[in-house]
C-alpha cells in the first residue's frame, strides 16, 4: 500500500498555500496518497472567483465579501502591503519560472490529490458548497483523523 500524506491547510495566505501545494505535489510525485484538509482561512483557496453568494444572513455575506475569493486574490502572510507585496511576489515568481498557485492546484488534482473542505468552518464562515471549486470532498474532524492516523506524514500549515 502506498504511503499516505495529510496536510491541514488552515492558512489562507498565498505563501503558505503555495508551500502546501508544493509539498502536496512533491509527495504525490513520490508515490504518496495525499489528502489536503482545508479549514478556516484555508477554505478561501478553494473558493470560485465569481460564485454568486446567494441568500445568506448579513454576517455570512460580510465574511464572504471580506475574505479573498480564490487563489488569485490571496495576500502574503508577511509584507503584503495591502496587496502590493503579493503582486511583487507573483512577479518575482513568474520571472523565476515558479508555477503559479492555480497551476499548482491544477497539477495536484491531476495527480489525484484529494481535497477535503471542513464543513464546520464552512458553516461558521457561511461558505456554501457551490461557492467552492468542483471536485472537492466534504468532511469533519473524524474524516481528517481517519486519514491522519494512517499517514506517515502530517502537516499543519
Amino acid at each position: 500500500m502506498a504511503d499516505k500524506t495529510t496536510i491541514i491547510v488552515f492558512s489562507g495566505d498565498l505563501d503558505k498555500a503555495m508551500a502546501s501545494f508544493i509539498i502536496a505535489n512533491g509527495a504525490a510525485a513520490m508515490g504518496s496518497e495525499v489528502t489536503m484538509f482545508f479549514t478556516f482561512w484555508g477554505l478561501n483557496i478553494l473558493r470560485k472567483e465569481n460564485a454568486a453568494p446567494g441568500k445568506k444572513p448579513w454576517m455570512e455575506r460580510l465574511f464572504g465579501a471580506m475574505m479573498p475569493k480564490g487563489p488569485e486574490r490571496l495576500g502574503l502572510s508577511k509584507l503584503n502591503m495591502g496587496g502590493l507585496g503579493a503582486k511583487m511576489m507573483k512577479w518575482a515568481m513568474r520571472r523565476k519560472n515558479v508555477s503559479t498557485l492555480p497551476q499548482l492546484i491544477e497539477m495536484a488534482r491531476e495527480q489525484g490529490v484529494k481535497l477535503v473542505a471542513c464543513t464546520m468552518s464552512m458553516d461558521v464562515l457561511g461558505i456554501r458548497p457551490e461557492e467552492l471549486i468542483d471536485g472537492v470532498d466534504f468532511g469533519g474532524v473524524a474524516a481528517y483523523l481517519g486519514e491522519a492516523y494512517d499517514a506517515k506524514l502530517n502537516l499543519f500549515i
Partner: peptide, 14 residues
C-alpha cells in the same frame, strides 16, 4: 529545463 521545484519530480513521475 527551466522548471523549478516541484515540477522536475512531477514531470519525472509522469
Amino acid at each position: 529545463r527551466g522548471l523549478s521545484c516541484p515540477m522536475p519530480i512531477v514531470k519525472a513521475k509522469k
